[in-house]
């Protein structure tokens, strides 16, 4: 399982006053089981890129290969593409529409032709992956749930299609800290337990540092940088010139380094930082 993106180009409103080059020669590869974080400020082309990966937008030129199949080819069947590549939009809870949670989650699998007698199993499995209790809420209305639960129902609706690639556009936007953590943990579970490729866009650098194997930095429709979180976040000045930051724990570590010469840490997450501090200062 792999994704190959070759020389994607896409222009919005060609020939119109609002003409913008949204993607400018974008190429990258994603390998089996990887989690990729995409960062870039609003308008850098992230969302346009995501929509190319499951055929919602066709490029002006360039190709997208998923699992050895060229999905930008005119002969590619879009239903197959969408079964292979699951895309969760920003605020996905706004797309819920069925009377019950179970029916809503079953919408995707039904569209891809899953037999009725297989459905309950599918829905149960998807709900368990996103951490929802089937027996408790499968028959409730999705509109009566809390914000965090709604978001997970919406994600389950895509997971239930058993895609090989799961793409999420700002999966934690607008959630409170507790729901935010739950969704992050859920993404980790999906990646680990189903060995799915996960590609997500986020403005939250702490999330990007925690989840990603590799980070792609987008700027003005191009991939400006890519590498492990450690590599990417070491270019603090370059990132800031693109209007991007680094995980906030870096600021705290900087202050500690200034106060205590000799202390070193290139931690990116609070857990790593806490570990480094404990070790150096001999704390429990």
């Amino acid at each position: 399982m792999s994704i190959e993106v070759k020389n994607l180009k896409y222009t919005y409103n060609p020939g119109m006053p609002g003409e913008t080059l949204a993607l400018d020669d974008v190429s990258f590869e994603v390998h089996d089981g990887e989690t990729i974080g995409i960062i870039g400020h609003t308008g850098s082309g992230k969302s346009t890129l995501l929509q190319h990966l499951n055929g919602l937008i066709r490029p002006d030129s360039g190709e997208v290969w998923v699992d050895g199949q060229c999905i930008t080819d005119k002969s590619a069947k879009l239903v197959d593409v969408r079964r292979k590549v699951g895309l969760v939009f920003q605020y996905p809870e706004y797309q819920l529409f069925e009377e019950t949670v179970a029916k809503d989650i079953a919408f995707g699998p039904k569209n891809t032709g899953i037999a009725e007698d297989q459905m309950e199993k599918r829905v149960r499995a998807a709900m368990s992956i996103v951490g929802l209790d089937y027996d408790e809420i499968a028959e409730s209305s999705p509109f009566e749930l809390s914000g965090g639960q709604k978001r997970r129902v919406a994600i389950a609706g895509v997971v239930a299609m058993r895609p090989s690639v799961l793409i999420l556009d700002e999966p934690t936007a607008g959630l409170d800290p507790a729901a935010h953590d739950e969704v992050l943990a859920m993404i980790e579970t999906i990646n680990a337990s189903m060995n799915m490729i996960v590609i997500f866009v986020s403005h939250n650098m702490a999330d990007v540092a925690r989840l990603s194997d590799r980070v792609l930095v987008m700027d003005k429709g191009k991939i400006a940088m890519q590498g492990t979180p450690r590599e990417v976040f070491s270019h603090e000045d370059e990132l800031s010139s693109m209007g991007l930051g680094v995980p906030p724990v870096r600021d705290i570590l900087k202050k500690i380094k200034e106060a205590v010469p000799g202390f070193e840490s290139d931690a990116l997450t609070t857990d790593e930082a806490a570990e480094d501090i404990r070790k150096y200062f001999g704390l429990k």
């Binding site: 600021d251 705290i252 500690i256 200062f281 704390l283």
Partner: peptide
């Protein structure tokens, strides 16, 4: 604050 934390750790050190 980050400053407080840095000062506290310096004291420990």
């Amino acid at each position: 604050t980050a400053e407080d934390m840095a000062a506290e750790l310096k004291r420990i050190k």
